[in-house]
Amino acid sequence: MKRYLYDAETKRFTGTVDSDEPLENSTEISPFDADGQAKIGTWFDVDNQVWKSPVTEPTQDKRLFMNLSQNVATLQSMVMMQNQQLAQLMTKEAK
């Protein structure tokens, strides 16, 4: 049986081993996703018996990019609204 090992202190995934016996700091629960990948820093939540992905804070560049992307989306929405208003005015004038 395949067992998935984790570090005693950090609970981070450290590897696999084949063993029929329960091992200290191991679980039968796989940290790998459907693609057979485990994210770097994946750790085992012993209380809930689940593997969790590391939580990373976005860098300053990522925060700036997200903010700019939101601003662009807002501006696009405003342009669409104005175009609709212009189309309505032009329709009224054509009558």
Rank of each mutant, 00 (worst) to 15 (best):
M90A: 12
K52A: 03
T10E: 05
S53Q: 09
P58W: 02
P22F: 11
P31H: 01
E24N: 09
F32Q: 01
D33C: 12
E93G: 02
K62M: 08
S26W: 03
S30A: 12
T27Y: 08
F13S: 01
T74S: 13
M90C: 06
P58L: 11
L86M: 15
S26N: 04
P58G: 07
L64D: 13
F65E: 10
L68D: 13
T59R: 09
K95Q: 15
L89N: 12
M81N: 13
D45G: 03
I29Y: 07
A94P: 00
T59A: 09
D18S: 05
L64Q: 11
M66R: 07
S30K: 05
P22T: 13
K92H: 06
A73F: 03
T27E: 14
E93M: 13
T10H: 07
L64W: 02
Q85W: 06
S30V: 04
Y6K: 01
L64A: 07
Q88I: 02
Q84Y: 01
E21D: 13
Q84K: 11
R63D: 04
T16Q: 15
Q82H: 10
K11E: 04
L86K: 14
D7A: 14
D18H: 04
D7G: 07
K39Y: 05
E28F: 05
R12W: 01
N83H: 01
Q88R: 10
T14K: 09
S69T: 01
M90Q: 15
V55Q: 14
A87V: 03
Q76E: 15
Q60L: 11
D35M: 13
V79W: 01
K92F: 09
K52I: 00
T42A: 15
K52S: 02
D18I: 08
V46N: 05
L75P: 00
Y6D: 01
A87S: 05
D7P: 02
E93F: 02
R63Y: 04
I29L: 15
Q82D: 11
K39Q: 11
N25L: 04
T10P: 02
D20E: 15
A38G: 13
P22L: 15
A73E: 15
M66F: 03
